[in-house]
């Protein structure tokens, strides 16, 4: 028998009423890492084994969007995106927005979807949200690989600032997760959330510089647009990828970072408290 099992054997579990407000235990999440991986692996296997189409769909859906937006924004509306070919410009925004959109939709219903399992076996509830985010991240990264293909196709080379790209993707993940932490629990109590969400996100899509640059937003509205954390994420991402793309206004980036950190920290605490008794409310 290995030492690891022995350690597990003497582990003692305390069952206590909910008291106060605390963070989910990182040690506990770490102890459940294997379950996290198995769940992600199982889900991906289950989804992509049966249909070749679901793999293709990863690319087809964003490509269709890029095609439509290219037609509208570069042929009809003639939006100025500088020296960047419009399809390349929009594929970055579309795939990144898709991640945000799907994380919110999938993540906010994750606790309800997993409830039959949660009602039977114990796991830290955060695992459920992490699984959901990781699945979306997996698809995001695959779809995002199209950006490289577009760079090659248009014969462009990315800026050296590319090294900062992981930071932009990380910001996208944390922002999505901070909202999911709030919505997942609320959705257990008020199921309307999963009904309203797609519509809200649809409106947000047009109110966020996803398929157009912030530069084309009228001057008097810019401050409002920039108070959207997703604007910071996308503008920064494009700054990382494209040589001549302007750095977003750091004042707003800082504000948004603070907002997201607050959302995330309180999201974790409140999620931790309310997800413990989620089974009682389902």
């Amino acid at each position: 028998m290995s030492i690891v099992t022995d350690q597990k054997a003497i582990k003692s579990i305390q069952i206590m009423p909910i008291s106060g407000w605390e963070f989910p235990s990182p040690v506990e999440i770490w102890n459940f890492r294997e379950l996290l991986f198995v769940m992600i692996k199982s889900y991906i296997k289950g989804k992509y084994r049966q249909s070749a189409l679901s793999t293709a769909y990863l690319f087809i859906q964003p490509l269709l969007s890029v095609g439509i937006f290219s037609f509208i924004f570069s042929r009809i509306a003639k939006i100025d995106v500088g020296d960047i070919p419009y399809p390349l410009f929009s594929v970055v925004g579309v795939t990144s927005w898709n991640f945000f959109n799907r994380s919110l939709n999938d993540g906010s219903s994750s606790l309800v979807t997993m409830s039959p399992v949660l009602a039977k076996v114990y796991m830290p509830r955060l695992i459920v949200v992490l699984v959901s985010i990781c699945l979306q991240l997996f698809e995001y990264l695959i779809a995002f690989s199209m950006v490289a293909v577009f760079f090659i196709y248009f014969g462009m080379s990315p800026s050296i600032k590319l090294l900062l790209l992981p930071l932009a993707i990380f910001a996208n993940i944390i922002f999505s997760m901070s909202i999911v932490l709030w919505l997942a629990n609320l959705n257990v109590r008020f199921r309307d959330i999963s009904m309203l969400l797609p519509g809200v996100i649809q409106i947000l899509f047009y109110a966020t510089p996803v398929v157009y640059p912030l530069a084309v937003v009228p001057e008097y509205l810019k401050w409002l647009f920039q108070l959207n954390p997703m604007t910071s994420v996308l503008e920064f991402m494009r700054y990382c990828l494209f040589e001549n793309y302007p750095l977003p206004d750091m004042k707003y980036v800082l504000i948004n970072t603070c907002v997201v950190i607050v959302l995330f920290v309180f999201g974790l605490i409140i999620f931790n408290r309310y997800s413990k008794t989620i089974v009682d409310r389902l």
Partner: peptide, 28 residues
């Protein structure tokens, strides 16, 4: 799976609960 309102319990050792067989099977 849920928490008590008051009171506590200590369990020394790993716990497996078999509340229903086949929980969490993925049909695919």
């Amino acid at each position: 799976v849920t928490t008590p309102t008051t009171g506590s319990a200590v369990l020394n050792g790993r716990v497996s609960s078999l509340l229903e067989v086949g929980t969490g099977f993925n049909p695919e």
